[in-house]
Design a protein around this nucleic acid. Structure first.
Lengths: 234, 234
DNA sequence: TTATTAATTGTCATGTAGACAATTAATAAT
DNA sequence: ATTATTAATTGTCTACATGACAATTAATAA
């Protein structure tokens, strides 16, 4: 039997930076950590990678366990591999960011798992290097969202143009001109206008749109310019 | 003493996809693997992550050991974490791509470490999932190079416009109009024209340029459009 | 009727992009 | 001196994108 002699072995975890959008504010899903050390402190959703699963599998599992949701947009974006990032024992963490339609998230699981949504700018301090992970994930989200129509993952099946614009403004911390924004979005071919209106936030009501999934899939990898004054930092 | 109970532990490796450019062809640095299994087969440069080093440290070390070079452009781009990717024992691999000025690479180390440059399109079969890693790294390189001036990392201190164009054409597998290309490159402010000429490939000779490092550093994160007909796939 | 938000449209200046052609330049080889 | 060769720049044309800003039309609850 061949062996790799006496190389050191490490724990491997996954951590998920879960973004959500409620129509107004960009949010982050956090949990109270259930094991020592730092028990009861706020933390990203995460878990160890089991013997029979890939890191992708582990991230999917973690997300399922904490939100009850399947088929979530997940993207591995960085490994955190400093030797001392976990004070107890060396643990590498493979970080993923996830985009969730917040309305799909079932409230009772919230209670079960002590998970809670926080407005991204009013979140508590997190354990270990999780604050850094969140900052990195935000940057990556901004970057990706400027070039690919990824933010649709955060919206419910039916959404309005004002909601879409609010989302873009929240992610990028900027005001966007409505006329130009709508023109641009309509020109992507990604939107399908529905007959129904959302009258919850105005008298006139805003038409609902749904995503053209076929176009979304086929054009996802193309490079768009979805942001005015594109100037990113990553 | 707190412990994470009986979670499984794994080996963690780094693998580097090392790109080089000789003025004509995009190349890949490979080594003959020195341990079982698959000993003497071609492989990416890699190694296990030691107990006292971060994954970034490990990648730097691996590169230093195999090329003798420091200060190489290195970017972590993906973790390969399938349980069975290594037949002997579960090993996660953190993949980095590296960009090397091929002229800096010292030939004698080549012999010592059995490392060899292959034209990227005429490379041998690689072990494990290394073929996939190379394909992924190429895509990532193309993507990044279209948006950021990263390809300068592959060029020597002095380079000519024709060399630069050839490099862009090699990375992206396309012909580029010289007039438009030179206009675009000159307009970035990244180039500093030198007095000296390179007469090796023409009678007239092509002026050497060097990189404006200050501008390079300050503008690196901005999103450029360095490719005609930008249409990427990642 | 009014206030309010939605959605579209217009306009203007500016810039980029790319196809394509032409020109000027330098110099080694003949 | 002429020629062949590659380098580098420039011109031109069309098309389209961009973004600032304003104006307009629309729908409807209060």
């Amino acid at each position: 039997m061949i062996e790799y002699s006496s190389q050191p072995h490490y724990l491997v975890a996954v951590d998920c930076i879960v973004f959500g959008f409620d129509g107004e504010t960009l949010k982050l899903l956090l949990v109270k950590r259930s094991l020592e050390p730092e028990i009861n402190k706020w933390s990203l959703i995460g878990g160890f990678v089991g013997a029979e699963e890939s890191t992708d599998d582990a991230a999917i599992k973690v997300l399922k366990k904490n939100t009850g949701l399947d088929g979530i947009y997940l993207e591995q974006f960085k490994v955190y591999g400093k030797p001392d990032r976990d004070p107890i024992e060396r643990t590498l963490s493979v970080a993923y960011f996830a985009l969730i339609d917040i309305k799909k998230y079932s409230q009772q699981l919230n209670a079960d798992y002590h998970a809670e949504w926080f407005p991204i700018n009013e979140r508590p301090e997190l354990i270990f290097d999780h604050n850094t992970m969140v900052a990195d994930a935000r940057k990556r989200l901004r970057y990706k969202a400027a070039l690919h129509p990824i933010l649709f993952e955060l919206l419910p099946k039916k959404f309005t143009l004002p909601q879409l614009q609010t989302l873009f403004e929240a992610v990028n911390d900027m005001k966007i001109d409505t006329g130009n924004f709508n023109r641009k979005m309509n020109s992507t071919g990604l939107l399908v206008k529905l007959d129904e209106k959302d009258k919850s936030s105005s008298k006139k009501g805003a038409y609902y749109f749904k995503l053209n999934h076929k176009k979304y899939r086929s054009d996802f990898h193309l490079v768009f310019n979805l942001l005015p004054n594109l100037s990113l930092d990553l």
